[in-house]
């Protein structure tokens, strides 16, 4: 009963936050010194043309009305037109999103694998855990772009093992239905495409994974260690359970909560990493799109990317909360 309630309330909170995000982006647009009419028509437009354009864009109406229109547009998937590409921002985003989604998801998987390895190795005091930890920490202190640059110098230029840019080097790679090359390759029975896509993904995804891996791994390790010194573990030991049974049967379930929350939060950092690393690797995703939009002050494009990534983040974290609530019997009652 209460769980339905919890999901409902969490969903409502999510909607409110997305609305706040939309309001913030709208406010930024108003605060911005850039004039959209100027951006559309250029410097030589006549007074009449400017007035007509202002009217067409609804800029002569009260601000509340403008916000209403803006929201209504958002609901219909209308993010305005890009000043740079002259296409609807929604169209542009749809073209760029799959590449970014594939990169971010791969980065997240790598981050989780590294975090879990790091946490369990330190908790169980596996030989070499200290060295692994040191390496990971050092990696997390290096800026994402430098990791990418080092990777290119080492694995592309020096060893020649991995490609340095783009998503694929296969010309006739399939382009549907998911637009994720790793999956599309499999769906079309082209393992060579999947393999090639994975090779392209490995460096950029690892570069964005190291920071989140350390953050998640630290949280997981400290909650594992905290749970291991708790009273119920002493009880389990007194029952004669083995350390393995205790860790897997009792501790992990209680310890993952904090790490899962941290993972949700780290997705934000990961998005920022994606934007940076896409430039280094010439990855045709949202990062490249926003990087090309920033110098020309293409506000609709920047706002679109912000709204998209922000909403994704909010939805992911709401989902994390709901999953956690479902897994914790203490929230029931």
């Amino acid at each position: 009963m209460t769980q339905v309630r919890f999901v409902g309330q969490r969903f409502a909170a999510m909607v409110i936050i997305v609305l706040a995000l939309a309001a913030a982006v709208f406010a930024l647009q108003k605060m911005s010194p850039l004039d959209p009419v100027h951006a559309r028509l250029g410097g030589q437009a006549s007074q009449g043309a400017i007035a007509a354009e202002r009217h067409a864009l609804g800029l002569d109406r009260p601000i509340v009305t403008q916000f209403g229109h803006y929201l209504a547009g958002l609901v219909h998937g209308d993010l305005g037109d890009s000043y740079r590409t002259r296409r609807p921002v929604t169209t542009d985003l749809l073209a760029y999103v799959p590449a970014t989604a594939e990169l971010a998801a791969t980065g997240l998987i790598i981050a989780l694998v590294l975090a879990i390895a790091f946490a369990f190795a330190s908790t169980l005091r596996v030989r070499g855990a200290g060295l692994f930890r040191l390496g990971l920490m050092l990696g997390a202190s290096v800026p994402t772009f430098l990791l990418g640059v080092f990777g290119i110098l080492l694995f592309y230029q020096h060893f020649g093992w991995l490609p340095a840019s783009g998503r694929t080097s296969i010309g006739n790679a399939p382009t549907g239905p998911t637009h994720l090359l790793t999956l599309d390759g499999l769906l079309h029975g082209r393992p060579d495409v999947t393999w090639d896509a994975l090779k392209h993904l490995l460096m950029p995804a690892t570069a964005i994974a190291l920071g989140p891996a350390v953050a998640i791994g630290r949280v997981l390790r400290s909650s594992l260690e905290g749970e291991l010194s708790s009273d119920y573990v002493r009880t389990a030991r007194a029952k004669g359970r083995s350390e393995r049974q205790i860790l897997l049967g009792h501790v992990v379930r209680n310890a993952v909560g904090a790490a899962v929350s941290m993972t949700g939060l780290q997705v934000g950092l990961m998005f920022a990493g994606v934007l940076v690393v896409e430039q280094v690797f010439g990855w045709p995703g949202l990062g490249l799109y926003i990087a090309e939009s920033i110098p020309v002050a293409d506000f609709p494009a920047i706002a679109g990317v912000t709204l998209l990534l922000g909403s994704a983040y909010v939805v992911i974290n709401a989902a994390v909360d709901v999953i956690q609530a479902a897994a914790d019997p203490r929230i029931r009652v």
């Binding site: 009273d231 389990a236 030991r237 007194a238 004669g240 009792h250």
Partner: peptide
């Protein structure tokens, strides 16, 4: 050794601790 201790606990020992709330696994 750890294994021997565990075997003794299983075969011969039982334990009750002070705070039954924290001494039981909250999610099991």
């Amino acid at each position: 050794t750890d294994a021997e201790r565990r075997a003794v606990r299983v075969a011969h020992l039982g334990a009750v601790f002070q705070d039954p709330m924290t001494s039981l696994n909250p999610t099991m």
